[in-house]
Design a protein around this nucleic acid. Structure first.
Lengths: 112, 112
DNA sequence: CGGGATCCGTCTTGATACTG
DNA sequence: CAGTATCAAGACGGATCCCG
């Protein structure tokens, strides 16, 4: 919920994704091939269930993520990036590069 | 205050700057040549004084910003980016580009 | 007057327990 | 398994106060 609006692209972007969790979900989908609720919960940062549900809903509403049933007969849900969500890749990479360069104890996590 | 740590550069970076205000201050210094407390307050997003003071202190502690007296005989303070702070320019530009492309009502603000 | 610090009511966040 | 309900703790916004 943006308290105020400005037409600045930085401010507006931060209104949407400028929090501690949203981009981590995008990261999980984009780089770690995670797609289910439980997989997001498993990430080392330890998001809690209500925050995760809330952010997934927001990401859907923003058109960055789609939610589909895993298969016709399962109630398992599967979250994927839309094209608009994919467009955050450049941004995520810029963040990664900055972190790797300026924060001592960071590294590219290995595939599990 | 990072509640948890991980070695992921994205998560660690978001621990530092993943909020609605911090990068807006960096933006004001970097792109709008603002350097004083009152100038930051004037930005259209409307940060409040306690939040601004808090973020400036955090930015100092992170080594992204330095605080100096305006001149020897003035008590006016002047905030500037360190080299590490300047290194966020690429990131800020990536955010700007994403916002301009994907958020309808954004535009590069003109100089005042 | 500029640069904050403090206090307080409100809104948001998050951990945990619980449910279909 | 994928969430929702609950409730405490923290962050925020605004006003006011303070200090040089």
């Amino acid at each position: 919920m943006p308290p105020k609006r400005s037409t600045c692209p930085i401010a507006s972007t931060l209104d949407l994704i400028g929090d501690r969790w949203t981009l981590l979900i995008v990261r999980d989908i984009m780089f770690f091939d995670k797609h289910r609720f439980e997989e997001f919960l498993d990430s080392p940062e330890g998001i809690s269930t209500n925050i995760l549900a809330n952010r997934l809903k927001l990401l859907e509403e923003l058109g960055l993520v789609t939610k589909q049933p895993y298969s016709n007969h399962s109630r398992r849900m599967s979250y994927h990036l839309t094209e608009k969500g994919e467009s955050l890749r450049t941004l995520l990479k810029a963040i990664t590069r900055w972190g790797l360069k300026h924060l001592p104890d960071t590294e590219i996590p290995r595939e599990e």
